[in-house]
Structures are given as C-alpha cells and as structure tokens.
Design a binder for these strands. Structure first.
Lengths: 311, 311
DNA sequence: GTCTGTCCATAGCTAATCCCTATGAGTTTG
DNA sequence: CAAACTCATAGGGATTAGCTATGGACAGAC
C-alpha cells in the first residue's frame, strides 16, 4: 500500500480523473484527498504549459491537449507495467539469457546437460561459444560469457585465478581411439604401451588446445615422439578421419563410447585423467539463468557419479 | 534548468547510467551528484525486487532484468516526450479541431473566413454543421459545436442567454432577388413597394429557418400575404429556381451580389437588416483552435467594415 | 609489496516535495 | 435563497531527493 509506484503521481492522477470524470471520485479511488489531485494536476499543467482538464462545467472534461497527452501517458504507464512484469519473468526463469563458453571437447561431453537445461527453462536464450581452452578464462573476466566449461588436468584444489570459481562436473580418462578397420582394432588389443602409441599415425587437435598440450607433455615424459599426421581444430574432422580406419587419436572415453565407429584402447602408462569443470566469475552479479545452470549442473554431476558407481 | 521533469528521476538515471556505462559519468551529464544515482538506482531495484545493474566489474553492466526493463523504460520515456511535444503542437495550432455550426445562409456569407482560417492553420480539422438557427444555441450549450454563426436581427445588446457570448461580424441587408429573365429585372425596376412584393411568386426557406420567420413577420406587419410557391431547406435549390427566371426570393445582399444570375431589388419599406454574429460558450475551456478562430474572425470583420467604408 | 587513482556505496544533513485538513468560491438542485 | 455539490486555495507536517564527506573495493604504477 505505502510502497511507492514508479509512475509519476501526477500522471496517475490525470489518468484516474479522466477515467472517473471527477476529481472527487478519482481521489476516493486513489485513496488520496481531493486537494492533492488539484495540486498535482495544476503542476502538471504548469509543466506542460497547457490546460489538460476543463473544470468549468458540471463534469470534468479533457481538453484537446488533455486528450492527446492522456493517450501518451497511458501508453507510458503501460510500458512500465509491462517492464515490471517482464522482470518477474527473468526471475522465474521464463526469460533471460545464458552464454556458455567451451571447447569442442567439452561440447561433446556436456551437450546432454545443455539439453536438460533447455528443456527445463525453454524461455532462456542459450548461446554457446566454441573457443580454445585458454580463451575461456579471459572471456569470463571480460564478461563475454557467463560460464565456461573446461577440460583440463585436475586442478590443485585451489583456484588458479583469484577472480573465478570452479566446480568439477566429472572426471574423464583419455584413451587411444581407433576406427572399425584399424589394425589394432582388428587384433582386438585392449591395451598398448606408450612405445606402441608413439608408432601410431595420429589425427590431433592443433596446439591451440590444452588437450593437445597435455598429450604432448605425456609423450615427452615417456620419451616418445607422436606422429601427428593431421592437425585440426575440429573434433568432427578428427572423428571422421579416425572412423575411416587407418588413423588414431586421443579422446576422452565418453566421446569414444558414444561414437559408434570409435573403439578405445588403453595406453600404459595411463594417459592423464582430466576433469570437466565449470568456471565462472567469483564475485559479481550472477543472473538467475546463470545460477539455475550452476545448480542444475551440480545435480547432474552428482547423478552421473552415482550412475557410474552403480553401473 | 530547475524545472522538474515529468519522468521519474530513477528511470532517467537508469537510462543515463546504461548509456554512459558509469555512475560517475552519468552523474556529470545529469548535473547531479554520484551518490544521488546510487541511491535512486538502489530504490528502483528495491521496488522491482531485482538487481538492474552489475557494479561488480570495472564497468557498470546491465543485468538481464536491467536490459529488459530498460527497453520498456525507454519506450515509456519516449511516449511522454511525444505527448509533451504533441501538446506544443496543439498550442501551435498544427493540430486540434474546430466544430462550427451555422445556417445555410451564413454558410455562404462566411466561407471566405473559413478558407482563410484553413489556410492559416492547415493542421486544424474543421467540421461544419448546417443546422437551423434555433439549433445553434442548444448545440453550443451541449458542446456539440465550438462556435456558431448566426444570422438574425440585431440582438437587444444583451445576451439572451447567460451561457453564451456573441460577437457581431457584420450587418447585412435583405433584398428581393430575381433572375436574369424575371419581369421586374426586364423592366429594370430598382425598388418596389411591399404591396408589389406581396404579388411576387416566391421560393423560400421553410419555417425551420429564422430568416423565414423574420420575412413572415415583415409581411404581417405590412399587411400582405406572401405567395410562397416553393418551400425548401436548401439554399442551392432556392438560387437555382430563382435563376430560372419566373420566381423571386429574399436573400442577404452579399449572396445576391456574389451569384452571377441574381439581381437585387429593394423593397419599400425596407426589409429588416440582419447581423451575422458568432456565438460561443461564455465560461468554459476554449481550445486553441477555437480562440484562434475567434481572433481571426474579429480582425476579418474589422477589415470588412473598413473596406465597406472605403469602397 | 605499497601507493595511488578511480570506481561505487554509505551516512547524515538540508531543502524541496507531497499530502493532509480546513476553508473558500462557483454551480446546479430543491 | 439555501443546500449540496463541485474544484481551488492556504498553511502545516511528514516524507523524500539531493548534497557533502567519507569509506571500501579494485586496477594499474612504481
């Protein structure tokens, strides 16, 4: 009741008076005194330098100017009401937007999460940006994206940046991936040594991607030189090439298992594990859409862990 | 400068901050202090129960809710600006409307005035209503017309109604009007007696019209019985019939002189003079369009008197 | 690391404003 | 003419917007 309205009182009063055709009646409806209306209308007329109401007769009539102005005042009032309502929509997640940044790798791993989110909040406009891993954190700092999804070695438990927070969604192992007709597939080898791995012709992500750096370091640590036949920034290209048969690559197990034509082969010593994590700005405003995503992702992650334990 | 704006300050401030991306910059532009903006935005956010601006980063950013609300706020602000401008337009007489009520007689006499008005204020929508003389005053009282133009005997100097004011535009004498081939025209008679007038076959306005009543009274006073062959409520019909030759009528001199086929013949004793007057509501709002018409008519009237004296 | 400059937020005060009650002026009704 | 109704006006009290002065957070310079 005593909460102020955004809309200027004088305009509200004008609208009410026009509606009731009477100061007295309008004053009752608005729960203010009649002189208040007189005063406010007078001020409005002074501001507009034009009479709006004709009070000479028995009933209050709008002047030409009043009629014209009233139409615009009503529209303005309507706009603010709509705006107020629209904010509610944002809060109950029936509107809003969310910008995700991720790599081609995590794209494959979390599109299920994305589709769940979209089903749950169909009104939220989702935009995703594929970008190299290293671009994700700057993008968050510069607020170009709301949430990033990264694929990296397990973090040292502490944030590497003071501006961001992270949450581990799940852990993922890397395997050598081969196609249906690949020699190693034919020979039904389940695991190979690092030395054998070094002999494979590989199609790999280029050095823009952190995953590639991790693989290069693994090779360096094992004293092997990988044979990179093709480099690309497209995961689709990699998968297509591997499915053709003669080339191999290194991918997270989930991707390998969900692609019909790919088969995993373990490498000994084990290729490094990686975590898929969300990263977002620590301090600062998080939109309802953003908060909802973080929450959904958290429970989705818990579910996946449980399924893995049960399965 | 110190004149208040209609639009709520908080919304103006929001718009400015969004534009400049900074409280400080917006405050300078608006010539208020920066804490004022902080306070107002805070109140607006409390009212809407939703943050509108994200001040956590280096620059101020709009939140989802802020973006959506801002769009409506801008529209509302635009509407009020348009409304304010529209009122100026009304005052500039580039818009508005004027409703005139008059009789078929005064229609002929003052269409020059009407066309001058229209040339001067082309934005004003003019609507004219032909009506019997007696309907004009009620029409004014009931605000169906803004201004009436009457053709009647000089008023007894005082208003016959307490609700209306009048202004005499000019005075008009009545003459017998005949066509090119009328016997009296052939014999080049300049004046005739009332007795001869009584022998004429007349085409006249019907008794709805005050002019007709005045003529009837004249005849009664002179002890003659007019021979009304045709009665009509259309001045055009009267003029057409008279121009055919055998019939006569009684019309104001201006109409007779401006119609090529009509010729005036004076009657002795003189037919009553009449004044053409404007009549309007005394108390009550007069639109700019109405005031402009009254003013123009007044100077037009003065011009006519002067020309009559010179010519 | 500290220092500095630049943001925006907060506190407390002043001045403008909004709104009220009481009353007056002008019309229409009985 | 009086009664009942309309809106306008006057003056006082509570609310609010705005100011100055200051504090906390953050980025860049040294």
């Amino acid at each position: 009741m005593d909460r102020r309205d955004i809309f200027p009182r004088s305009l509200q009063y004008l609208i009410a008076i026009a509606e009731y055709g009477s100061y007295t009646r309008a004053a009752e409806a608005l729960h203010v005194s009649q002189p208040t209306l007189s005063q406010q209308i007078k001020q409005l007329e002074e501001y507009l330098q034009s009479p709006l109401l004709d009070r000479s007769g028995r009933t209050v009539q709008l002047t030409d100017a009043g009629k014209i102005f009233l139409r615009h005042a009503r529209r303005a009032w309507g706009e603010l009401n709509i705006g107020t309502r629209a904010i509610q929509d944002v809060q109950d997640l029936s509107r809003g937007s969310l910008r995700l940044g991720w790599t081609p790798i995590t794209d494959y791993l979390t599109c299920d999460l994305l589709s769940r989110y979209n089903r749950m909040y169909p009104g939220i406009t989702l935009s995703t940006l594929d970008m190299p891993q290293d671009d994700i954190e700057p993008a968050i700092s510069e607020a170009r994206i709301d949430i990033g999804i990264t694929f990296s070695k397990p973090l040292d438990s502490e944030e590497n940046s003071s501006h961001t927070e992270t949450f581990t969604l799940f852990e993922e192992a890397l395997y050598l991936a081969v196609g249906e007709t690949h020699p190693r597939r034919i020979r039904k080898r389940k695991r190979i040594t690092a030395q054998d791995f070094g002999k494979e012709s590989l199609v790999q992500l280029n050095t823009d991607f952190a995953l590639r750096h991790h693989i290069d370091r693994y090779c360096h640590d094992c004293g092997i030189e990988p044979r990179n036949v093709i480099e690309t920034n497209s995961l689709t290209v990699i998968i297509e090439m591997v499915e053709l048969g003669s080339l191999a690559t290194v991918l997270p197990s989930t991707i390998i298992n969900t692609q019909d034509g790919l088969y995993p082969i373990a490498v000994v010593p084990e290729l490094p594990h990686h975590t898929v994590s969300m990263i977002w700005h620590k301090s600062g405003y998080k939109s309802p859409a953003c908060l909802a995503f973080l929450e959904l992702a958290s429970s989705w992650s818990a579910n996946m862990l449980q399924e893995k334990r049960l399965g």
